[in-house]
């Protein structure tokens, strides 16, 4: 799936948003992945991943880390989010050193991701370049809503629920951080960047 590729919103905001993935290849290295998945999670936690998860259980913003780790299986997909380039560099350096043989993908603004690769001493193999959205764009929600809903690439976050959360924050019933955490519950993969989301809500509401 291309679900982390087409995030939208202000470029400076997108520069604080990096998605990391560990991938197994069917028929090649997809058996007995749990120890490697745990190594990835440990490296990500050490580097300060603000959210991570396994689509089979859910995100760490909603489920205890130990529960997600305990339920890891060969069908798991491990992924998460960093908010700073330095975190990506630290993560890549450690994964390179551990030489686990699994595919590693970093999604984000190319200038930032490629700089992180250089700093970590890894050489990009291939890139899925985003050419953005085509077709009936006039049917899409407003840009602020989209900048939040596209942080769950599977579109599990309903646009109307984003509007509801922004109204709740605007009326003082919850903080931007509480609103962002509530929205993160919808993204089972753990790639929703609740830190960036809280900033977007703050900018929108002035709270």
């Amino acid at each position: 799936m291309t679900h982390s590729l087409h995030r939208s919103g202000d470029i400076e905001s997108q520069k604080k948003d990096f998605v990391w993935f560990m991938y197994q290849t069917k028929g090649v290295n997809d058996v007995g992945i749990k120890p490697k998945a745990l190594a990835f999670i440990e490296a990500a936690e050490a580097a300060g991943s603000v959210n991570w998860g396994d689509v089979k259980t859910g995100p760490v913003t909603r489920f205890p880390a130990e529960e997600i780790k305990a339920k890891l299986s060969d069908k798991s997909r491990i992924r998460g989010v960093f908010t700073r380039r330095e975190q990506v560099v630290e993560f890549l350096k450690r994964i390179k050193e551990e030489d686990l043989g699994m595919s590693v993908v970093i999604s984000g603004v190319l200038d930032e991701v490629l700089a992180a690769c250089r700093e970590a001493g890894v050489k990009p193999h291939s890139i899925n370049f985003s050419l953005g959205v085509w077709g009936r764009k006039e049917k899409l929600p407003d840009d602020v809503t989209l900048s939040i809903t596209t942080m769950c690439g599977h579109h599990m976050i309903p646009p109307k629920f984003v509007e509801y959360i922004i109204k709740q924050v605007d009326s003082g019933k919850m903080t931007p951080e509480q609103g962002a955490n509530r929205l993160s519950d919808f993204c089972y993969c753990g790639i929703f960047n609740q830190v960036r989301c809280a900033e977007i809500i703050k900018n929108q509401t002035g709270k």
């Binding site: 686990l100 993908v105 999604s107 490629l114 690769c117 193999h125 890139i127 985003s130 953005g132």
Partner: peptide, 28 residues
Amino acid sequence: NGQNPAIGCLDDLGIPRPHRGKVNVGLG
């Protein structure tokens, strides 16, 4: 460096160059 010159054909078609990407960093 993450480049491929073939992407230059976007210019001829008036399609903006991509600013986002999903980078396979080659550790597999």
